[in-house]
Design a protein around this nucleic acid. Structure first.
Lengths: 293, 293
DNA sequence: GAAGGTCTGTGCAAAAATGCAATCATCGCG
DNA sequence: CGCGATGATTGCATTTTTGCACAGACCTTC
């Protein structure tokens, strides 16, 4: 093709180099010779009229000031993944409903956006979201896909850690001194363990088994609530109290029953949810819990 | 590279074939031989495991049921354009503020989204939006970029027709019989001309010089208002009255003063606004005005 | 400080992609 | 119905790309 125009496929190798930091590593990942990778990086830089990498004897490092360029290349990668999904769907059209269960927090924040993405990618696949704060249904699994903050994955389920949910303490600006407790299903969550240790029961004014309810209680000035960052940060009525609790976070698992993992449409939905959550990782983790356990 | 994996650059040629409908036409557009185009289409179909085109002796037609695939390929193209912009910006970093003027309707609907896109693409470029319903400032141009519904472009400005703004009649469900008029700067708009012809002045209950004000008046049940589809469709308080007015639409121009058209950051903003408006063309035109003059 | 490993960079031969030109099919038009 | 135009397809020569092998640089480890 023409020498001056940007070869889209070169973007893929530039991305691999940016990720691995070396020509050799990128070459292994791509399954080609490292000389090829070097020449194609040289070609894309020539086409771009600009150096993308700093070359050292130890590897290729992304040149300073190229973050936006890298982000644009990642956009292309995402688009290519969307194309691959569209092709898979055209090859073997999927249809049917996939039942997704998650906590009420996630069902009201990120999952609707994911559902819209899926509707755009696979014509016949509908997703049905069921908010369910109990953990028990993970084993019974009357849903096809479960999206759950949890320390580990129960036996019989397969899935991935897609992101981490960060927690922080939030309260209305009047800043009451007492706390709001976590009851019911929430009492197994990681923040509940800290609360039980650090805060004497006398300081707990009220409690609830839903972060959404806790958020409203906190906004009404009833106390300090431990909330997922994604809930607390978005609420203008609340302020984050940074020193009140050490950074805390939990893995978010996206899982299906082992027997269902092979069903194409279920697999598609699981993968898209995991990918979409990964894209929102920073938002889910929040500013306070960057280095939490 | 590997034969089974999707070559991103092949997506570009598949897109060209889908657009031109023939191998030869796509080859001309890409500046390569048609034999190359044919072999690369064959390759991407092999990699996809699926035929994308129906081959006839008259050309290549997109196979039925491939609309989603085409849309995904267009997503990739958009991402590649974003990459090219990011590269241009990295090559010659732009900085400074671009002043954009438009009608209050557009300033409140599509332009904020566009501004966010620009902020994501070019680090140092800020955009300042000024709502101004008068047309006079097009000639003086105390802004850098003007986004205006108008029949034609005044002398001294250069730009493109980016989309079309469709109009329809909206009213609250109580459906009053009388109308709301267009005054001030709006009296030059195309819907005003129809209103002056078709509706006797006695039937006009009130008027305003802003579609936003007219929308509120209509929502309050004060009469039937001619509104841009993008305003009327999004408002749950309003219903569209389809037979009340023939389909009507106006070109939306995205323009700069000729002397400023060469300034890189201004050119960038103008092009991104035009592209972004084009992406929202259906939304701007609305369901009623598909075949309006 | 030598040895082993990893990495970049570069000739050279093999493989693949491309351009060219010829052929065949189809459509529109006089 | 023949004629010209447009376009797909295919064989072949050429150009480009890739893989391979090797050299040199740098780091880690013993």
């Amino acid at each position: 093709m023409q020498s001056s125009r940007l070869d889209w496929d070169d973007v893929r190798v530039a991305l691999a180099v940016a990720r691995h930091g070396t020509l050799a590593g990128a070459a292994r990942a791509l399954g080609v010779n490292h000389a090829t990778v070097m020449r194609r990086v040289g070609r894309i830089e020539a086409a771009a009229g600009l150096a993308l990498f700093d070359r050292t004897a130890r590897g290729y490092a992304l040149a300073p000031g190229r973050r936006r360029v890298l982000a644009a290349m990642e956009d292309m990668e995402r688009a290519s993944e969307g194309l691959i999904r569209a092709l898979a769907n055209a090859r073997a059209p999927m249809a049917g409903t996939v039942h997704v269960t998650s906590t009420d927090t996630l069902c009201l924040t990120v999952l609707p956006g994911v559902a819209a993405e899926i509707a755009g990618a696979a014509e016949g696949v509908k997703i049905d979201i069921k908010a369910e704060n109990r953990h028990a249904d993970l084993a019974r699994l009357d849903a096809d896909v479960a999206v759950r903050p949890a320390a580990s994955l129960p036996e019989g389920l397969v899935g991935t850690r897609a992101a981490r949910m960060g927690f922080a303490v939030y309260a209305s600006p009047e800043a009451p001194a007492h706390w709001l407790g976590l009851s019911g299903a929430l009492s197994r969550a990681r923040p509940a363990a800290w609360l039980a240790e650090a805060i004497p029961p006398a300081q707990i004014a009220a409690s609830a088994d839903s972060f959404l309810v806790l958020r409203e209680m906190a906004a009404a000035g009833q106390g300090r609530a431990i909330l997922p960052a994604i809930l607390g940060e978005a609420d203008p009525r609340l302020r984050r109290l940074d020193g009140a609790m050490p950074p805390l976070a939990t893995e978010i698992w996206v899982a299906t029953h082992r027997d269902l993992a092979g069903v194409p449409r279920i697999r598609l939905v699981r993968d898209m949810i995991a990918e979409s959550l990964g894209r929102r990782a920073a938002q889910l983790l929040g500013p306070a819990a960057a280095n939490a356990p």
